[in-house]
Design a protein around this nucleic acid. Structure first.
Lengths: 225, 225
DNA sequence: AGTTCTATATTGTTGAACAATCTAATCTAT
DNA sequence: ATAGATTAGATTGTTCAACAATATAGAACT
């Protein structure tokens, strides 16, 4: 189950379009709650309505899109409750990662590399890259569990979080201060200090959640619907 | 996001068939790795090939069926590695549930009710019900997290485990001894004794995983493919 | 026996069509 | 004029027939 095509060659049109829309969604190209008409979307993405329906089933299973029977599919509109839930789930899974951490685990090397890259990206003021690398860092952390299923579940949750980010305006400050937190978290893991790592993790999650929540509320106030 | 139709009235044929096949899968009506031909399955379930493809996308996103491009879809054939992974993921999520447990949490009441029902079902030698109730018990336990996303992720994992059960012959003993373990686990949670609950949980998971693994190997030896 | 080639079957996708459902505008009645 | 019922239009859910692209199985060949 660990086979992952190095270069994501898309064999089928459906999956290609699914990945494409996925990219548009987490890039914030749609407004939350926006309806995605089948006729319209099929024309826009150059596939038939039948194939598009398969794509929608794909995306809706990933939680990026909400399918309401006989009504259509709508861009997911995560609210504050969803953010709280996402961070709750993150806490459980990532706490499990801390417990599963062992010195010299391959995932630690990946985390180190991503942490360094994030540091570089910040030097270049490339905030988009910082955001992506930050998420990759935490995804790599879940790799400590050595569980494909947890990896998959976490990837889903993180994709939803990126959907939230796409709705926000000021994504810069959301990742700035957390590079240091990630570094100290990683240091604790590399040192094999579980309790300290758990504390650092909780600290990160608490701060990040609060930042996202307030940014979301700001965005909602600016654009109430 | 908390709306869940009390009685699962199926508005669309696709979802109805999806649920139907889901039931057949976890009941062990298919042999693992069996190919599900579109033409054949569409005729069998009385829907068109296009609609069936949507159903397959649904099921494949739930991990019950494996979609291989240009090859078709196959009944998932979880092996020992998958079982290990499933229990690894369970350990992480359910350990989080123990940490989230608070006295008087509604989920504890549901667990109590399910535990009692399982006890009754054992008295009636209704092992099928015992198995279902055991899973419901643990699903209710994850409800302690108050996280719809963790609930969903856990439900997915448990469905895969049921798929494994469907492949086994002697499902009776798989749940017999665990009723007591569940009861002591629940007692520890109700008493607010987290560390003890965690120990009981690990004990349950360790025993259950070993039982499933050996039963799976036995089944595989009897029917090598 | 192993390989190549060919014929067949299956999947991936399309377009048109229809019933069922929802949406929005119109029309009534108070 | 506002509230509710009615109708017309649009959208979804689903089917069918068809075709290209790929995979499978079998035949022919070395």
């Amino acid at each position: 189950m660990t086979h992952q095509t190095a270069l994501p060659a898309e064999p089928s049109r459906a999956e290609a379009v699914a990945r494409h829309i996925h990219g548009l969604l987490i890039a914030g190209e749609f407004t939350p709650g926006e309806k995605l008409s089948e006729h319209q979307a099929a024309a826009r993405f150059g596939i038939s309505r039948n194939t598009l329906r398969e794509v929608f089933r794909l995306l809706s299973s990933q939680g990026l899109v909400t399918h309401i029977p006989n009504r259509g599919v709508f861009v997911a509109a995560p609210d504050a409750a969803d953010v709280v839930d996402i961070y709750r789930a993150r806490a459980v899974i990532q706490h499990g990662a801390v417990r599963a951490a062992t010195r010299g685990h391959p995932a630690l090397g990946r985390m180190r590399a991503l942490s360094d890259q994030a540091h570089d990206a910040r030097g270049r003021d490339d905030w988009c890259a910082v955001g992506t690398l930050n998420m990759e860092f935490h995804r790599a952390m879940v790799g400590l569990c050595d569980s494909p299923r947890l990896d998959a579940a976490f990837a889903l949750i993180l994709a939803e979080l990126r959907l939230v980010f796409g709705q926000l305006d000021d994504t810069a400050h959301l990742h700035d201060a957390y590079i240091e937190l990630n570094q100290s978290l990683l240091a604790a893991l590399e040192a094999g200090d579980g309790p300290n790592a758990a504390r650092r993790l909780d600290e990160y999650l608490r701060h990040s959640e609060r930042a996202v929540l307030s940014a979301l509320e700001r965005a909602r106030n600016r654009m109430p619907r």
